[in-house]
């Protein structure tokens, strides 16, 4: 076990400005575990999209609702669990944003980005919890 491994559990208010603070914290943990720039970019983007979804679509920005976040960074992988207090959703009901009829829609790309930038993504519970991880690229490109 490396001494750099990080595990954190906390609760966020439904405030989008909190997202940046979490991203910065995670970025530092990833860098100290030798994640490459592309991995860091991918994880930050997926976390951004997932937290915005939880705050905006899950909790509907309601100030009395919170988002629970738990993540772990090791030198092998990053994993995170994000739970909102919303009604949940079924990912299968989200339209494909790359379909011709949807390509000009200005929203709906977050899930696609999360799925493609992480190694694994699962929605559990009633669809109000996302659990995802990414395995570190051991030989990141310069």
């Amino acid at each position: 076990m490396s001494e750099r491994h990080v595990t954190r559990d906390f609760t966020l208010p439904s405030d989008l400005s909190e997202v940046h603070r979490v991203q910065t914290e995670i970025e530092e943990a990833l860098q100290s575990n030798r994640f490459g720039d592309s991995d860091v970019f991918a994880i930050k983007l997926a976390v951004e999209e997932a937290l915005v979804n939880a705050i905006k679509h899950g909790n509907q920005m309601e100030p009395d609702k919170a988002v629970r976040v738990g993540y772990t960074v090791t030198d092998e992988q990053f994993s995170i669990r994000i739970e909102d207090e919303g009604l949940g959703f079924s990912p299968a009901d989200v339209p494909d944003p790359t379909a011709e009829e949807n390509i000009e829609r200005p929203c709906g790309r977050g899930l696609l980005i999360i799925r493609n930038f992480m190694t694994s993504v699962d929605y559990v519970g009633r669809g109000n919890v996302v659990v995802m991880f990414k395995i570190r690229d051991p030989e990141p490109a310069e």
């Binding site: 970019f41 930050k44 983007l45 951004e48 999209e49 915005v52 000009e104 829609r105 200005p106 929203c107 790309r109 977050g110 980005i113």
Partner: peptide
């Protein structure tokens, strides 16, 4: 260096 899907939406509207 970094942008989210919300920014993509704005670019689509500008393109339109």
């Amino acid at each position: 260096e970094f942008m989210s899907s919300a920014a993509l939406g704005k670019l689509i509207r500008l393109h339109q």
